[in-house]
Amino acid sequence: MRIHFQNASIPTRAANRLKYRLSLKESQARQVTSEVFGYRDWTDLHSELGSTAASALDEGCDSATLSERRAYQASQLAASSVDLHGASADDFVQWWQPSAAHPHEEDARPAETPFAGSKEDLSFQEALSTLAHAVHHPVGHFEQALVTGIRRTENETSLSLAEAITDELLSGNRNREPEVARHLLEALASRGLPRSILNLSTSLALGDGGPKDEKRAAGLLAQLADSASTPDDLKRIAKSRLGTAQAHGNPQPAS
């Protein structure tokens, strides 16, 4: 069952949604997407763009045609052997809706048993991807998705990327958004990331992006100084600042 397209916008969007949902390599996401649409691979799909009248998207299909399409897509997805993190191929395709013009709008009811790669996880990955490729894009537009993702993700790479974006806010490599930076630091510090704990201490001591709280700032420095998991360079900084905090009250951000 081949679905024909006039351009690559729908296939590309579907491949990206699959990639971020399952943390796949782009090449793997494109291969699986191609197969779900009835093609041998991404090159085969692209070679056919515009050569035939476009197939109706899901919203334009009657219920019988849509059911048949979804069953085929689920069978192709299952045959790909990609790890769906516990979801059935049928349930995953119901979420993915690769051939829909407006995914998620067809059935707005929340899943009773959400699988790994929830809507929040997808929003987090999409926010990270957008910000990684657009340094001038306001981080605040994605604050909720980032904070939620930071607090719940088990993907260390994603967590590191979120911390790097926050570091750029603090260093001036992105447009200054102090309140957003403070909120991200709070989330990152809650995950026990030493550099973010150190930078949160600085923000609290300076009152940057939120209320000033020198007592809590000193407490975070003491936490870093006493922790065996704190890298040696950050531990030295924390001890130095802790020793002079009461006298100066003005620690500097970690580099």
Rank of each mutant, 00 (worst) to 15 (best):
A164L: 04
V147S: 03
I165P: 02
L169D: 05
E156N: 06
A134F: 12
E105T: 10
A164E: 01
D107L: 06
E179R: 14
S118D: 08
E106G: 15
P114M: 08
V135K: 08
T157C: 09
L161K: 02
G140N: 04
E105P: 00
V135R: 09
H133Q: 14
H102K: 08
E112C: 07
L159E: 01
A127G: 09
L159H: 08
N175S: 01
W95H: 13
E154F: 12
L169S: 04
A108Y: 01
V147K: 03
P110Q: 08
A108E: 09
T157M: 10
V139Q: 02
A134Q: 06
D107S: 03
R176K: 13
E156G: 08
L146V: 14
P178F: 08
N175E: 00
E156W: 04
W96C: 07
A162D: 00
P103F: 05
R109H: 09
E177F: 04
A145L: 00
S160P: 11
Q97K: 11
Q97N: 10
F124G: 10
H104I: 08
V147A: 05
D107I: 07
R109T: 13
Q97R: 06
T157I: 10
S160Q: 07
S123G: 01
S118N: 09
S160K: 11
A132H: 07
Q125L: 02
Q144V: 14
V139Y: 01
E126C: 14
I150A: 09
H102G: 02
P110M: 11
L161S: 12
N175G: 02
H102L: 13
V139N: 04
E179C: 12
N173T: 05
E154T: 15
A100T: 03
Q144F: 09
E154V: 13
S123W: 05
V139A: 06
R174K: 07
R152F: 12
R151A: 14
H136M: 11
H137D: 04
I165K: 06
S99T: 13
E177I: 01
